[in-house]
Design a protein around this nucleic acid. Sequence first.
DNA 1: GTGCTTGCAAAGATTTTGCACGGCC
DNA 2: GGCCGTGCAAAATCTTTGCAAGCAC
Lengths: 124, 124
Amino acid sequence: MSTRRTRQLEVIWEAVKGEMSHPTADQIYERVRKDMPHISLGTVYRNLQKLAADGKLQILTIDRTQHFDPLLEKHPHFICESCGKVYDVTLDRSDEAAPVLSPETGFTVTSHQLSLYGTCEMCS
Amino acid sequence: MSTRRTRQLEVIWEAVKGEMSHPTADQIYERVRKDMPHISLGTVYRNLQKLAADGKLQILTIDRTQHFDPLLEKHPHFICESCGKVYDVTLDRSDEAAPVLSPETGFTVTSHQLSLYGTCEMCS
DNA sequence: GTGCTTGCAAAGATTTTGCACGGCC
DNA sequence: GGCCGTGCAAAATCTTTGCAAGCAC
């Protein structure tokens, strides 16, 4: 169960660690293929999942497709309904903090995700 | 382009309009099939989309699968990471209101969705 | 050597679509 | 009758998985 340090994992991590564009698995695959032409898409998926399990990536599901976001810190996302681009957002009221359920509900909230939808600057 | 009132659309709407369990297209299909054994899954999808476009339903994408929620009013959802169930949520601080981006960003926010993740009562 | 990882391809799961027929207006 | 909606099945998307071979430790 220990995670081995393979060249594939390393190359994939290099490809996404500073990435701000919220790439999909396929986009990461295309990018990584330039360094490792024989890598397979399945391997990309498996390693992205590993990185996510490690807490190094966040998986955003937008419109039925996974996007991978290096986990710098929790932040909301803005999704343009016209072009589909995903933007990182900083809210004014900076910490509208973690929403909390009444304790008596018995639900345990471990994380949350706020998504804003609308039209981005370029599309308006 | 006008929406015709077909029996299929009606039956589908009847099946979801009071529904609080956030069913998937497939679950709605199974339900509707009891009244209309020959209805097709494609028709269910097409009509659910029509209802969503009409503003009668909200489509929640959870874990790569669409769930359909009659749109009573905007509310956050709690998704149990253990059993996958989706719950409607009312926050304490009732209106943590619509988050707003700084106006100068040029982004237009038309809607937003807050999702909480964790473990529900039955799964803990 | 042991057992996690990989590449490849096939299978899965969900949703969309083409087409000819049928039914609403 | 015109046209949108339907049923059916095939296609499309995106993701996961089985398996034998390979590599990390």
